[in-house]
Deep mutational scan, measured.
Amino acid sequence: NTKMVRFKKGDSVGLRLAGGNDVGIFVAGIQEGTSAEQEGLQEGDQILKVNTQDFRGLVREDAVLYLLEIPKGEMVTILAQSRADVYRDILACGR
């Protein structure tokens, strides 16, 4: 149940992230009207890879910085997997 989305970065990627470290990086929110939303990313999706950067094992701050450093107008390719069950557990633990 993995999906790959590809879009051109606007002012931002339009994602709020949660998790990090051993639990993985998850989409915690999506800005309305962004390409990330239009391409089908959803809250609870685990981000496995962005462009050439493996997101598994990253701390959340490093994942956020990586997304911020992608220049506006560059193509962004995100490999994600729907993991809403794991995401709910992360929220319940306050991570």
Rank of each mutant, 00 (worst) to 15 (best):
N1P: 00
T2D: 09
K3E: 01
V5D: 05
R6V: 10
F7H: 00
K8F: 11
K8A: 08
K9W: 05
K9L: 02
G10T: 09
G10Y: 06
D11F: 00
D11E: 13
D11W: 01
S12Y: 11
V13M: 13
V13F: 09
G14E: 08
G14R: 02
L15D: 02
L15S: 02
R16I: 13
L17Y: 01
L17A: 02
L17V: 04
L17F: 07
G20Q: 07
D22C: 08
V23E: 11
V23D: 02
G24V: 04
G24K: 09
I25V: 03
V27S: 03
V27R: 02
A28S: 10
A28P: 07
A28Y: 06
A28Q: 05
G29W: 11
G29R: 06
G29P: 01
I30F: 13
I30L: 09
E32D: 11
E32H: 12
G33D: 05
T34Y: 07
S35R: 12
A36N: 04
E37C: 14
Q38F: 13
E39M: 14
E39V: 14
E39P: 02
E39Y: 14
L41H: 04
E43I: 14
E43C: 09
D45H: 02
D45P: 01
D45N: 03
I47V: 05
K49H: 10
V50R: 00
T52C: 11
T52V: 04
Q53V: 12
D54M: 04
D54G: 02
F55A: 01
L58W: 06
V59Y: 11
R60D: 00
R60V: 15
R60P: 15
E61H: 05
D62H: 12
D62M: 12
V64T: 10
V64C: 11
V64K: 12
V64M: 15
L65R: 15
Y66Q: 08
L67F: 08
L68E: 15
P71N: 03
P71I: 05
P71Q: 00
K72R: 11
K72V: 05
G73Q: 07
V76P: 02
V76Y: 06
T77G: 02
A80F: 14
A80H: 05
Q81M: 12
Q81W: 00
A84E: 13
A84N: 14
A84C: 11
Y87R: 10
R88F: 09
R88H: 13
I90M: 14
L91M: 14
L91G: 12
C93R: 13
G94V: 05
R95N: 15
